[in-house]
Write a protein that binds this DNA or RNA. Structure first.
Lengths: 125, 125
DNA sequence: TAATAAAATAGTAATCATTACTGATTTGGG
DNA sequence: CCCAAATCAGTAATGATTACTATTTTATTA
């Protein structure tokens, strides 16, 4: 089935210790400090596998990069069009899953992305 | 500012007449039946512009393609992991926008994507 | 511990949706 | 009609991601 690998463990460790919704390449750079000769392909393969297994979240905000999130609970992602940041916001429940089920769809993961201007860019620009 | 072009009009016409959340390439193929020598780059440029202006919606479900939607109202997108289809579901309100505003974020567009198995794949497979 | 098959890896090459570029054409205002 | 800005067709370039291959690691069984 699924064997242990220290590469996958390091990837999960790095991802669990940030709240920046990093890209595969950012994770690669960080993991290299733990396993210097890890391959970029290994990072991509593991992230893809972990996301398929539901262990992590894959967020696509349309900036040309796939972003990853260690927090798999349903929550909102606020993507700033100006600075590109992605911040989290808690949701009291999962209204998307509720609506989906009502139409006969069986949801496994729900993704919420808001596009706009973040608080920081609003006040400083 | 923004000049009229029959290419952009044809793109909007095609997009408005489908509910399949097409890709740029699909739209290109359709528009070619109206304007045979239209360029794929023109389709991409207009779709990107229209989506930036808020005239259409850009949906990214992580299948490697950007999808477009003529309906800009906040609604749910149900993406089947099996057949790849994207269906709509109405939302009574816009809970994501509400939560975003509460944190100081100014939302312009909100995207809801549920991943799972559609009704059709559930019953037929 | 040794043997074995499945899983995973490093390194590199290939893919392909999307973007960038260029010189020609179209649009809209005066 | 004139002109500047906008748009276009056609083509080349980009770059994030995936595919490939020979080697190494893992987990199981004897």
């Amino acid at each position: 089935m699924k064997n242990y690998s220290k590469q996958r463990e390091a990837i999960l460790t790095v991802l669990s210790q940030t709240d920046t919704h990093p890209t595969a390449n950012w994770i690669y750079e960080q993991v290299r400090e733990i396993i210097p000769n890890i391959s970029l392909g290994t990072v991509y393969r593991n992230l893809s596998q972990l996301s398929q297994d539901g262990d992590i979240l894959s967020i696509n905000v349309g900036d040309g990069f796939e972003h990853f999130d260690y927090d798999t609970s349903p929550h909102a992602h606020l993507h700033c069009k100006k600075c590109g940041c992605i911040h989290d916001a808690r949701l009291e429940n999962d209204p998307l899953a509720k609506v989906a089920k009502k139409t006969g769809f069986t949801p496994e993961t729900t993704i919420y992305v808001a596009y706009g201007i973040c608080q920081n860019c609003n006040t400083n620009n």
